[in-house]
Simulated assay, not measured.
Amino acid sequence: MIIVLMGYMASGKSTIGERLAEKLNYKFIDLDDLIEEKENASVSEVFKTKGEIYFRKQEALYLREQLQSKENIILSVGGGTPCYSDNMKAILDQKNAKSVYLRASLPTLVEKLMRKKSTRPLIAHIETEEAMTEFIGKHLFERAQFYNDAEFKIAIDNKSKKEVTKEVLKTLF
């Protein structure tokens, strides 16, 4: 089985994915890390040197490769992955895949990302909480239709990583 975790930046996809993989004895794959390994460059370098269109094509290619795997995998995808190249359809059409949206409210995301913005090139330039709220709100509005197509939705607000992990396990099994 392939469990695909999706959601906005800082929704816990990688952390929860690693915990799930450990509990289930599945392989954990972070799609962005895989892209960096295959492209021999960071995601931000790929965006800068080859452009977003190239990045999205490679992202779709590597996603589909992982969806064909016969291994048990927890696959954490980038925040934008479900929104491009019919990726959400590819995930939903895959018989042995289950999709999980780790849903965080706008205030939760703003609070988390204001603390972590120095490690996130996409938002490092955002100075104020108001600007961050506007930036994330616009993205969530654009992406909600894709995220909400996930088979399972788990609210993460005010929950520990341990609680979210337990809830995902309970929901899936």
Rank of each mutant, 00 (worst) to 15 (best):
D149V: 03
L92W: 13
F135S: 06
L113Q: 06
T81Q: 04
N148Q: 13
M132A: 08
L109Y: 07
L75R: 10
K112T: 07
D86E: 09
A97S: 15
E65G: 00
P107I: 06
S69I: 10
L109F: 09
Y54E: 00
S105K: 11
G80E: 07
T81D: 05
V100T: 14
R103A: 15
G80M: 04
Q66I: 13
F141H: 09
T133D: 10
H125Y: 05
E52R: 01
S76I: 13
I136D: 00
S69M: 09
T108L: 15
T108F: 08
L109V: 08
H139T: 06
T81H: 03
M88A: 09
A90N: 11
M88D: 15
S118M: 10
Y101R: 05
G137H: 13
L67T: 11
E129A: 03
F135A: 05
N87M: 04
A131E: 15
L67Q: 09
L102Y: 11
T108S: 14
G79E: 01
S76W: 12
T119V: 08
R103L: 10
F141R: 12
S85F: 08
I73G: 11
K112F: 11
D86H: 15
T119Y: 09
M132W: 05
K98S: 15
Q66E: 15
G78D: 01
P107F: 06
L61H: 14
T119C: 08
D86G: 15
F141A: 11
F135Y: 14
K70S: 14
M132P: 05
Y147F: 02
V100S: 13
P121I: 08
L67K: 12
L61Y: 13
K89Q: 14
I91K: 04
G80Y: 05
V110L: 09
L102D: 12
Q94R: 13
L113S: 03
